[in-house]
């Protein structure tokens, strides 16, 4: 029996934090790629401490719904899941290349496949692009458009910026958008000055965040000048300094994220049949993102 466990941060304050986790879990359940799909949270329930004891399978794939390798994926999750003898060297990663490790979860005395975070998987690049398609309502978006990938920055985690650069490079290599730029909230180049970095009139801005919250719904829209007051909402596109800004909100809310979760599990050996194709197709018809 094959089980998928998606682990995420969650929040005591904001129900939107865990909403994408639940949505993607539901997508994967609906296509039956796993015998069971469970979710576990640092701040919500079931907690990371207790999620594994609700899992019934003997082939267990744990996928962290986090953007980058770092404190949570390397310390908090393994500790709370009680992955016996975990050492980050088991991932043998350069900060972007964590794949998976096979390790015994002490709580249930079964082995689990502990996967790298979704945010550093190459398939994440496709989700960023899909997000641009969703927010513009144009599946061919690219010509005449600039693309900004926005991250938190290195203040909290050096690997966070690596993930942003990595995906920005990959989008650039697609040669699909006129210009591609990595921007940050707390360091140069800053998202506040987004219009300074693009020649194109149209700019799609996609934050590499798992869920919408304070940063993506309040800080970034105000910092970019989409609105003076986030509570009043903003237009999509919004007109700023002669540019049209198509602000997409957190990439993690995009339906195609389910694909990255599946890719992580498949890379670790999960047998998922044609689930990837189904998810890619099924999530294509997702409603365009709304700003509010």
């Amino acid at each position: 029996m094959q089980s998928l466990v998606i682990v995420a941060h969650g929040s005591h304050l904001n129900p939107d934090s865990s909403a994408p986790t639940h949505d993607h879990a539901d997508t994967i359940r609906s296509i039956g790629a796993f015998d069971e799909v469970r979710t576990g949270f640092w701040k919500e329930e079931p907690s990371l401490r207790e999620v594994l004891r609700t899992v019934e399978g003997d082939e267990i794939y744990v996928v962290p719904l986090f953007i980058s390798e770092g404190y949570f994926t390397e310390q908090v999750i393994p500790r709370e899941l009680r992955l016996d003898g975990w050492d980050v060297s088991q991932w043998d990663s350069d900060g972007l290349s964590a794949d998976h490790a096979v390790i015994t979860a002490e709580d249930i005395d079964r082995t689990v496949h502990y996967c790298g975070p979704v945010g550093t998987h190459e398939a994440m690049t496709d989700v960023l692009v899909r997000r641009a398609e969703s927010v513009t309502g144009d599946s061919d978006v690219g010509d005449g458009f600039g693309f900004a990938v926005v991250g938190h920055g290195t203040e909290r985690n050096e690997n966070s910026a690596k993930a942003i650069e990595y995906h920005a490079d990959r989008i650039r290599q697609m040669d699909r958008f006129e210009e591609v730029q990595a921007l940050y909230m707390d360091e140069e180049p800053e998202v506040d000055d987004v219009t300074d970095f693009f020649e194109t009139e149209d700019i799609v801005v996609v934050p590499l965040f798992i869920a919408d919250g304070f940063h993506t719904q309040e800080d970034i829209p105000e910092d970019m000048g989409l609105t003076d007051d986030y509570t009043k909402g903003y237009d999509i596109p919004a007109h700023v300094d002669g540019h049209r800004i198509w602000y997409a909100g957190a990439v993690g809310t995009e339906g195609l994220m389910a694909d990255v979760i599946l890719e992580r599990a498949a890379d670790a050996g999960a047998s998922i049949g044609d689930a990837l194709e189904i998810v890619r197709e099924q999530t294509r018809s997702a409603e365009p993102a709304m700003g509010d």
Binding site: E45, P46, S47, E50, V51, R53, T54
Partner: peptide, 14 residues
């Protein structure tokens, strides 16, 4: 029940 009250059944059983 496990969705309303996650992991409570597993802990009660233990």
């Amino acid at each position: 029940v496990d969705t309303f009250y996650p992991a409570t059944i597993a802990n009660w059983y233990r």
